[in-house]
């Protein structure tokens, strides 16, 4: 009985596994293989060379402490990652807290949670572009500020800047934090909070010692979503940064456009490795499987 049920579950998993194998594992393997190939302006040919990787990091170690292009690009992306993660976590956690503990009726909770997802009914490019008329030099905010008399010149850093990229990232990704945290938080037994209160814990202590530990899986899952999205993104950085800010994705895109596929593949492998290290570090902190 037990034996046949494991067999059945294998069969049940097979279609998904097959899809994954065909459309994920195989292409990924090809990328890895191609990253060791040689290329010219018009061809790529099988080889086993490391020059694509050494090219990415050429001069990176000798010219320290000044950063090479690769390092400064990764640093830039990692900074965005950290900022977006911190902001989406703070906002996402607060919203989830409000929905779970402040909103009384379940119906209202569901309605409000659905409201959070409404922006997702349009494409993320449209959600992003809609910021432009607001933030631009002749945009609503600048015109408003000048009409009120708060500023005499348009504020330039509102658009095509680090700020605007960050704003768009937070806007696009906060919901990925809200939903998993909400899910973890909703399962918390309310009597635990009361018990903490009865035991004399301050609100802050309850948050730190009871709520956050119990929300860890949600936070971890949300973090994985946000980090992977930000690390690989180049469209948001491109549109909101006026293409003046580098991102790893953009470097890869330029290289594929110039038919430097092996170089692009090597870059993709490095990016993948970086993301995997981040995820691995995160999973050290929280055992997601166990907590689920």
């Amino acid at each position: 009985m037990a034996k046949s049920s494991t067999k059945t579950s294998y069969w049940q998993a097979a279609p998904m596994a097959l899809v994954f194998l065909l459309f994920f594992a195989v292409p990924l393997g090809v990328i890895l293989i191609v990253s060791f190939w040689k290329y010219t302006q018009y061809s790529i040919s099988p080889a086993f060379i490391f020059s694509n990787y050494t090219d990415i990091f050429s001069g990176c170690f000798t010219q320290l402490p000044s950063l090479c292009t690769t390092f400064s690009t990764y640093l830039q992306t990692l900074i965005f990652c950290a900022e977006v993660w911190a902001l989406t976590l703070a906002i996402g956690f607060t919203i989830a807290y409000f929905l779970v503990f402040e909103v009384r009726t379940t119906t209202m909770q569901v309605v409000l949670a659905l409201l959070c997802t409404i922006p997702f009914w349009t494409s993320n490019v449209i959600r992003m572009i809609s910021w432009i008329p607001l933030l631009g030099r002749n945009g609503l905010i600048n015109q408003g500020l000048q009409d009120v008399g708060l500023t005499s010149h348009p504020i330039e850093w509102l658009l095509y800047s680090h700020f605007s990229v960050l704003l768009a990232f937070v806007h696009l990704n906060t919901v990925f934090m809200i939903i998993p945290i909400l899910n973890s938080m909703a399962r918390i037994d309310k009597s635990l909070i009361e018990a903490a209160h009865d035991a004399g814990a301050s609100a802050w202590q309850t948050l730190w010692n009871v709520l956050i530990p119990l929300c860890k899986p949600g936070i971890a899952i949300g973090s994985i979503f946000v980090i992977t999205v930000v690390m690989g993104d180049y469209i948001t950085i491109g549109i909101m940064g006026g293409q003046q800010i580098a991102s790893v994705g953009k470097v890869i895109q330029v290289q594929t456009n110039f038919l430097q596929f092996p170089l692009a593949a090597a870059n993709a492998v490095v990016l993948l490795a970086t993301v995997l290290v981040l995820i691995w570090a995160l999973s050290r902190l929280v055992d997601i499987r166990k907590e689920l």
Binding site: T69, Q76, A246
Partner: peptide
């Protein structure tokens, strides 16, 4: 050139 251009964008 492409490599240097990427440097310019990243600068």
């Amino acid at each position: 050139m492409v490599k240097k251009w990427n440097e310019f964008i990243a600068a």
